[in-house]
C-alpha cells in the first residue's frame, strides 16, 4: 500500500479513486447551483482543480477513476444521464495528470508544483481533445465546431482553474501530509 510506484493498484487506489470521484461529482454538481465567474462563453468548473490534484497526489489510476466515475456521477446527479465520451475525456484528464505523481517529492516546493500543473495542463488538452473529437461522431458536429465551440473554451476554462487552484490545494495538502505521513 505504501509503494509510490506509479502504476500500483490496491486498496489505496480504490479508496482515493472513489473519494476523488465523489468529490469531483459533488463539486461539478455544485457549480450548477452557485454563480461562478465566467468570461465570454467560458464557464469555470473549479472541480477540475480537485481532479488534477487527486491525480497528482495519488497517481494515474486514481485520476482515471476519479475523472470517469466523478463526471458520470456529476452528470447523473444533475439529471443528465450518461455521456460516455465526456466521462472518458475527464478520466483521461485525471490519468495524464497522475503521471506527475512519481515526480513530486515535496508538495510545497515550487518546482514540484510546476510539474503537477504542467502534467495537469497536458491532461486537460488530451482529455478535452478526446471528448471534443468524439462529440463529432455522437453529436454530429464538424471539426471546426469541435475545436472552436468545445475544445478551446473547455481548455481555457480548465487551465485557468488549474493554474490558480492546484497550487493552493498542494500547499494545503503538504501541511496535512506532514501530520500523518504514511
Amino acid at each position: 500500500m505504501n509503494d509510490k510506484s506509479t502504476w500500483a493498484f490496491g486498496t489505496r487506489q480504490v479508496v482515493y479513486g472513489a473519494i476523488g470521484a465523489a468529490l469531483y461529482g459533488v463539486f461539478s454538481w455544485a457549480t450548477n447551483i452557485f454563480p461562478l465567474p465566467a468570461a465570454g462563453n467560458v464557464t469555470f468548473r473549479p472541480a477540475v482543480a480537485v481532479l488534477i490534484f487527486f491525480g497528482a497526489a495519488y497517481g494515474p489510476w486514481v485520476g482515471l477513476l476519479a475523472g470517469f466515475i466523478g463526471n458520470t456521477l456529476g452528470d447523473a446527479l444533475s439529471g443528465w444521464g450518461f455521456y460516455w465520451n465526456w466521462s472518458l475525456g475527464n478520466g483521461l484528464m485525471g490519468m495524464v495528470a497522475g503521471l506527475a505523481m512519481a515526480a513530486i517529492k515535496d508538495f510545497r516546493a515550487q518546482a514540484d508544483i510546476i510539474k503537477a500543473v504542467g502534467w495537469g495542463l497536458a491532461g486537460i488538452v488530451v482529455g478535452m481533445l478526446f471528448a471534443s473529437l468524439t462529440e463529432m461522431i455522437t453529436g454530429g458536429i464538424d471539426l471546426n465546431t469541435a475545436l472552436i465551440g468545445y475544445f478551446t473554451p473547455a481548455v481555457i476554462g480548465n487551465a485557468v482553474v488549474t493554474i490558480i487552484l492546484v497550487p493552493i490545494l498542494m500547499i494545503a495538502f503538504a501541511a496535512v501530509a506532514a501530520g500523518r505521513g504514511r
Binding site: 486498496t11 489505496r12 473519494i19 468529490l23 473549479p46 490558480i164 487552484l165 494545503a172
Partner: peptide, 27 residues
C-alpha cells in the same frame, strides 16, 4: 478573475483536505 477563483479556497480546501484524511482511515 484570479482573485475570485482564489476566494473559493475557503470552500474547497476544507472539504478536500478532510477527504484525504478520511481516505487514510477508510484504507
Amino acid at each position: 478573475l484570479v482573485g475570485r477563483l482564489q476566494r473559493l479556497a475557503p470552500l474547497i480546501i476544507p472539504v478536500v483536505m478532510q477527504s484525504t484524511v478520511t481516505g487514510e482511515e477508510v484504507i
